[in-house]
Simulated assay, not measured.
Amino acid sequence: MTTGGRTELGVDLDELRLLVGLSYRELARRTGCARSTLHDALTGQRFPRLDTVLAIARACGGDPMSWRRRWVNARRCQAPRTAPTMSRQSTKPS
């Protein structure tokens, strides 16, 4: 998995879409998702929401439970977000 599973998940979803021969326009119609949302998810530009992944899987005849597990695993692989640190200025006494 690259970039925390994002790219692999998107690539595999896009392969599923291509396997069944759906255009972005048709996939958008079947899922109710915006084409831009689908494009971002399938190209790895953004980590997709679970409901987007499941909608794509269903529209393409994939197993939603399998895709749910893949999404959870990819989500776990994401780099942990670090909390913003306070600047030195704000920690000095007045």
Rank of each mutant, 00 (worst) to 15 (best):
A79D: 07
R58L: 12
E15T: 13
R49H: 11
P93V: 12
R70V: 08
R88L: 10
G61Y: 10
L27A: 08
L50Y: 01
C77K: 13
Q45P: 00
V72M: 08
D12Q: 14
T31R: 01
I56Y: 05
A59G: 03
S87H: 08
G4P: 00
S90L: 10
M65T: 14
L16F: 08
D14V: 03
L50Q: 10
W71V: 11
P48W: 09
A74S: 13
P84C: 00
Y24H: 12
V53H: 02
D40C: 04
P93Q: 09
C77G: 10
G32Q: 02
L18V: 06
A74T: 12
R75C: 02
S90P: 00
C33E: 14
A59H: 05
L22I: 07
T2V: 12
L19C: 12
R81M: 13
D51M: 00
A34K: 11
R25E: 15
S66T: 14
S23Y: 07
C77E: 14
Q45S: 09
L50V: 06
W67T: 13
G10L: 04
T37M: 06
V11I: 11
T91S: 09
G44T: 05
A74M: 07
G44F: 00
R17T: 03
V72K: 09
A57D: 04
Q45T: 10
L9H: 01
L16W: 08
V11E: 11
K92T: 12
A57K: 08
T3P: 00
R35C: 07
Q89F: 04
R35E: 15
V20N: 01
R29K: 11
P64M: 03
D51P: 00
G61D: 08
